[in-house]
């Protein structure tokens, strides 16, 4: 019973910002189809859904967005969300992030001074500054798709993937600075922080064609 109450509290806390976020960002904009670039600062799916905020795509204007903070809620606090997407390049950053501080314990489940993701020509990188998961420091220069699981009181194992890099079927690559996954009430809850998607590497263009001489002339400087 106590367990259920605790999960209930968590879900309630998770649910709170949904409505708020939905007001701030009416809908998650499309990622832009084809090989468009896109980025967002935060999103959540599962029991709690937070639209991609703020979402930008190279196929739409404006190409950059900033949000000073999310409306006050007991789950997610942050200072700045900033995103940018142009053709072949996208980036996202989140500053002074704290997740589930009030809902779980006086200590934040996850805190970070800065989490960024950058995608350029299909290649990505991320930057983590002072990231702590349940008090454990997370390595800043993590290699792609580094994953750790830390037990958190009341939540069980919280899985964090840093510098997550996924090659999508449409040829784009998505870099997520940090992704947090937790099982709550038997369902998966995923929160993505700083995500950037861009077109796959145009790095291997075909060899340029051998020229076909044009039957023509030009007076050149002999």
């Amino acid at each position: 019973m106590r367990k259920h109450l605790k999960y209930g509290a968590i879900v309630g806390a998770l649910a709170a910002p949904v409505a708020v976020a939905a007001i701030v960002v009416p809908s998650a904009s499309a990622t832009g189809g084809g090989t468009a670039s896109s980025a967002f600062g935060i999103s959540a799916s599962g029991l709690l859904t937070i639209p991609q905020t703020p979402s930008v795509s190279s196929g739409a204007q404006p190409s950059t967005k900033s949000v000073a903070s999310l409306p006050h809620n007991p789950l997610v606090q942050l200072s700045v969300l900033r995103t940018k997407a142009v053709s072949g390049h996208s980036e996202a950053s989140v500053v002074d992030l704290k997740i589930a501080k009030a809902a779980i314990s006086p200590k934040a489940v996850l805190s970070a001074k800065l989490i960024t993701a950058t995608c350029d020509g299909g290649a990505g990188s991320s930057r983590l500054v002072d990231v702590r998961l349940a008090g454990h420091a997370i390595q800043a220069g993590a290699s792609p798709n580094s994953r750790i699981t830390v037990p958190v009181q009341g939540l069980g194992g919280v899985q964090v993937t840093v510098n997550k890099q996924v090659h999508n079927a449409d040829g784009t690559t998505t870099i997520t600075g940090l992704e947090l996954a937790v099982q709550a009430l038997g369902k998966s809850q995923v929160i993505a922080i700083s995500s950037a998607t861009c077109a796959g590497a145009p790095a291997a263009p075909g060899e340029a064609p051998r020229p076909s001489p044009v039957p023509s002339d030009l007076p050149v400087t002999g």
């Binding site: 020229p211 076909s212 001489p213 044009v214 039957p215 023509s216 002339d217 030009l218 050149v220 400087t221 002999g222």
Partner: peptide, 24 residues
């Protein structure tokens, strides 16, 4: 850079002219 490949009808001095982007 190599800008064009031209084959003059009358190859007075060269069968092929390869103009570049630069000018005198």
């Amino acid at each position: 850079f190599i800008m064009a490949s031209l084959a003059p009808a009358k190859a007075t001095y060269s069968p092929l002219i390869l103009p570049v982007g630069a000018h005198s």
